[in-house]
Design a protein around this nucleic acid. Structure first.
Length: 476
RNA sequence: GCUCCCAUCGUCUAGCGGUAAGGACGCCGCCCUCUCAAGGCGGAAACCGGGGUUCAAAUCCCCGUGGGAGCGCCA
């Protein structure tokens, strides 16, 4: 059997992190089996679907690198086809027109709820042969669900699930205006597009029995279903925009690499023994529906951060640098005016968790620090630091080659000359050039910053000390 | 309320009748160290409860309990 999977989001919002995972699973499964992956936009709800949301979904897919072999298909462009199938169902008596008013349906539901029954259509129009006398307005079309027997779904992740048909009611497949509804279009599309495996969130399990029944009425073999558990937020609650990043683009904005997000998502609800780090190729090779978990899982941002740092540390610096450049740009920095981004990535990757943090902590390489971190200055830019800085400035200005190793020797040389531990020299220097207490190793920092900026900032620090510290009572 | 699903460290998970219940993130401690990190080493930390089945249950069955989903002229 040729494998064909699909991702079928409704364009009513951004590409959700949960949706991204189902998309990833579907994509991986198709790639794993040399099949096709289809993107289908479920936009039958014209009220809620927006072009912005469609773009957001396409953008999210592109950022993650989940490419599709077919589509995007739009359901709104397939209305003729749906009408055709509905007519066929009507002719064959597998569907019927229902003239019940919304009001009647509403009170029916209320009465059932009051009786603690499961609300469902009572089948009043099921046996009508012609419109009732009191009919007003256009009818909806309902699917004639079998009254008896059971519908079995052999779910690839949940196992065998049995639904008694009497628990199902006659669902509406076309609205009064003739437009088809979700449970119906899904079935027609999956059938027409030759979808072999439906991988989707398990909030759809209860729909599956209805869909299987429609498929059977159409005389078609159902696809293989695999319902993956939900993703919960860090507190184990349902995901919402409120509780942090829900849209995949938020992850980009927060400084995550797409490969980190992909790896993280893959390991959320799926596993392969004790392995945590997977390349995309490994995922394609190893992914299997049978290894998907049965229970919902919570997001854990610290694990994502760990993965992200892993990819920043071990990835191709040029690749990471491209992403870093984007974030620098977001912060109004033109990377052209500073050190090599690749070198910067190498220097910062092991001390930052995200690209955003890396960019933030690297700002001083591109522009003068805006003043000194108060605490760091109080501790390191004391009166006693002035001669140290002066010595450093002198030694560094005479340095032949502005390279890490030579700089390192020079700085340690100054420390020895002043009979100070390296830290006593490096730290004031660090504050002087970076404005704060944290940076890559001082020699690397200076090498990246360049001689000119280094000397200028040392001088500025000396002036700052003269102006702000000289009159203060000296302490050690 | 009815139907369906789920249940191993805080979190992600391995386990598929016999294990000292393993790994990862995070956390704690030590080492390393010019800052912050990274890294190395070590540590604390889990089978929801009760019944069965079995020589033997985290693993199989049942019942509870607790979560979740669905019950639209939404998808």
């Amino acid at each position: 059997m040729t494998v064909k999977t699909r991702f079928a989001p409704s364009p009513t919002g951004y590409l959700h992190i949960g949706g991204a995972r189902t998309a990833l699973f579907s994509w991986l499964y198709a790639r794993r089996h040399g099949g096709h992956f289809v993107l289908r936009i479920e936009d039958t709800d014209r009220e809620r679907s927006t072009p912005e949301a469609i773009n957001a979904i396409l953008e999210g897919m592109a950022w993650l690198g989940l490419d599709y072999d077919e589509g995007p298909f739009y359901q709104t462009e397939r209305f003729d086809r749906y009408a055709e199938v509905i007519d066929r169902l009507l002719e064959e008596g597998r569907a019927y027109r229902c003239y019940c008013s919304r009001e009647r349906l509403e009170s029916l539901r209320e009465a059932q709820m009051a009786r603690k029954e499961k609300p469902r259509y009572d089948g009043r129009c099921r046996h009508l042969t012609e419109p009732p006398a009191d009919a007003s307005g256009d009818p909806v079309i309902r699917f004639r669900t079998p009254l008896e027997g059971e519908t079995v779904v052999n779910d690839r992740v949940k196992g065998r699930i049995v639904f008694a048909n009497r628990e199902l009611d006659d669902l509406i497949i076309a609205r009064a205006d003739g437009s088809p509804t979700y449970n119906f279009v899904v079935v027609v599309d999956d059938m027409d597009m030759g979808i072999s495996h439906v991988i989707r969130g398990d909030d759809h399990v209860n729909n599956t029995a209805r869909q299987v029944n429609i498929l059977q009425a159409l005389g078609v073999e159902p696809p293989v279903y695999a319902h993956v558990p939900m993703i919960l937020d860090e507190d184990g609650k349902k995901l919402s925009k409120r509780t942090g990043a829900a849209s995949v683009m938020d992850y980009r904005d927060q400084g995550y690499l797409p490969e980190a997000v992909l790896n993280y998502l893959a390991r959320l609800g799926w596993s392969h023994g004790d392995q945590e780090i997977f390349t995309l190729d490994e995922l394609i090779q190893l992914f299997d529906i049978d290894d998907i978990n049965h229970s919902a899982s919570s997001l854990n941002s610290s694990k994502l951060q760990w993965l992200n740092q892993h990819y920043m540390k071990t990835g191709d610096p040029a690749h990471v640098a491209r992403h870093l450049a984007w974030h620098l740009g977001e912060m109004g920095v033109d990377p052209a005016g500073g050190p090599s981004l690749e070198a910067l990535v190498s220097a910062q990757a092991e001390r930052t968790k995200t690209l955003r943090e890396m960019a933030q902590n690297s700002l001083f390489f591109f522009r003068e620090p805006e003043g000194y971190d108060e605490k760091a200055a109080r501790k390191n830019l004391k009166a006693g630091a002035a001669p140290v800085l002066a010595a450093l400035r002198e030694a560094l200005s005479g340095l032949g080659q502005w390279q890490t190793e030579a700089i390192h020797e020079t700085v340690s040389g100054v420390a020895e000359g002043q009979e100070l531990k390296l830290g006593k020299v490096a730290q004031p220097l660090r504050v002087a050039v970076s404005g704060g207490p944290v940076s890559p190793p001082i020699d690397e920092t200076l090498a990246l910053l360049g001689r000119e900026a280094t000397l200028r900032r040392i001088e500025a620090a000396e002036a700052w000390i003269a102006e702000n510290v000289v009159d203060q009572p000296q302490e050690g």
